[in-house]
Amino acid sequence: MKYIGIFLTATFVNNMVLHYFLGICPFLGISGALSTAIGMGFAVIFVMTLASVSTYLIYYKILIPLNLPYLQYVSFILVIASLVQLVEMFLKKYSRTLYKALGIYLPLITTNCAILGVTLFMILKKYTFLESIFFSLGSGFGFMLALLIMAGIREEIRGNDIPEGLKGPGITLIIAGILALGFMGFSGF
């Protein structure tokens, strides 16, 4: 039950995009069409879970015993960057279909702050190993959910008459604000 709670909290209440403002760049950039949003969403869930598992092991099994927690940021970002490379090479070799679906999004993920953000929150909130897995899965799903809703809305308003200055990022941000207000309902305001 505890794990389901962590998962749902990470997905809805503390949504990565709409509550912590992480991963805004892909959120604004890739939410133009539904099909790309789905690909990006799955790529993020996949890498996020792998990243939190590996950084968890590195932090608690290597950095803490050696008393080097200040190397946290340097090692985490390197692990994430190399992990993305590894996943890309692995998929290219063993699963052409998956590579075709996720391939072009993988390089973009290195600079997605949601991934590093999840690993930092995991340390900050002192989650155990299993809790971290559920937390990162939930965060990944939350990211995809926000991306999908946004892409859907943006497809709908494509032909609408929007004031000149607000076109593009302006109106997207205002929609995101209203979405964030809606998501606040999950935390029981």
Partner: peptide
């Protein structure tokens, strides 16, 4: 209170970008 909440952050930035853009144009 809205403007100290996450939703307000998005809306304020959206409005400011809108103002900045029309000023620039």
């Amino acid at each position: 209170l809205l403007f100290s909440l996450p939703g307000g952050a998005f809306i304020s930035l959206g409005i400011l970008i809108g103002i900045f853009n029309s000023f620039k144009r």
